[in-house]
């Protein structure tokens, strides 16, 4: 997934990314460096693509959280995610 336009469904990344907003993700940045803390990433989970922010990294596994922590389904529920599940980094966030 070199570049992909995604429409966001859900409120867990508010206020950074709101329900209905569109973002562009790309796998290119991660060709040059590993995903790092605070990156907002898209990853596969149960055949869906989810977006969350990397909160911490433990042995090449990633603990992700929604920015709207009080209302987010994230690593606190489904655990750490693997590098291979990450499909890209949010590189552009259209705020409209």
């Amino acid at each position: 997934m070199l570049f992909s336009l995604l429409g966001i469904k859900g409120h867990s990344m508010e206020p950074t990314i709101k329900n209905g907003q569109k973002v562009i993700i790309s796998s290119i940045p991660y060709l040059f460096y590993k995903p790092k803390q605070n990156d907002i990433i898209a990853f596969r989970k149960n055949a869906n693509i989810l977006i969350k922010r990397i909160n911490k990294i433990e042995n090449d596994k990633y603990f992700v959280l929604g920015d709207n922590e009080d209302d987010s389904l994230d690593s606190r529920k489904f655990g750490l995610i693997d590098r291979k599940e990450i499909v890209g980094k949010i590189i552009l966030n259209f705020k409209f």
């Binding site: 336009l5 469904k9 859900g10 990344m13 329900n19 569109k22 693509i49 977006i51 389904l73």
Partner: peptide
């Protein structure tokens, strides 16, 4: 903005709640 609105896109979930 208009171009982005018209472009096809995939859905990504920012799931809320349990």
């Amino acid at each position: 903005n208009l171009i982005v609105k018209m472009m096809p896109y995939k859905i990504a979930y920012a799931h809320c709640d349990i």
